[in-house]
Amino acid sequence: MTTAYPRRWRRPPQIVPDRRWRIGLQLLILAYLVLAVGSVEVDWTRVAEGLVRGQRFAMGFLQPDFTSRWTDIRQGLIESLTMTLTATVVGVLISVPIGIGAARNLAPPPVYLVCRSIVAVSRSLQEIIIAIFLVAMFGFGPFAGFLTLSFASIGFIAKLLADDIEEIDASQAEAIRATGASWWQLVHYAIQPQVMPRLIGLSLYRLDINFRESSVIGIVGAGGIGATLNTAIDRYEYDSAGAILLIIIAIVMVVEYSSSYLRKFLQ
């Protein structure tokens, strides 16, 4: 009890240990926030009006009107659902060879580079921008939407598939190779069993994403429920818009639950 212990303790800073750097960084963040918030121009009278509209929208959400625009909604839904499914199937079919080609441990360097660049282009362009161009080229309607979603699916699935193949257990592949198997046999016996469950999971996940995206690309004319929604909001028909949004939420939930069920069932 003779030793005196300190009566003060401060938690040592975890991320930036140097005090000057820390304060500088904090000032920088503060300055950015001030500038950023300052650059937001708000028309408060417009916002006040908006709150009234927001209330009307909330009411529309609570009392959705499914009937008065039902034919439009039905047409939009059919387009969305069909393009979701076809785009996912085509997207997966194309992504498998590209995914294998983009795996460093399977493909020779030139093939690897080509496939990786296809993946990079597909991933960095957003669906809506692709849709703008495809609509300009192929005309309005769900066919352009189908192409958009297929193209976007390729980047998504091929990338994750390739990463998966690169991460597989090398010793298993080696064991198969040691038996004198050809490249095709190698893919079939060593790679496929390891990545197949994951591929199915990815496809179902992409199905989910494609449906959500199909509700958006209609805004630029690529068909689907998005076009119907856009029209409803433009006409300030909030009860119809609320109905469409509720349908979208319901379908997303159904797709999400059934795909997680399917994934469990298949494994």
Binding site: E41, V42, D43, E49, G50, R53, G54, F57, I219, I233
Partner: peptide
């Protein structure tokens, strides 16, 4: 964004 632009008008907010 579509909904909010319809409600509170176009802009950053």
């Amino acid at each position: 964004a579509l909904l909010l632009v319809a409600m509170i008008g176009p802009g950053i907010l």
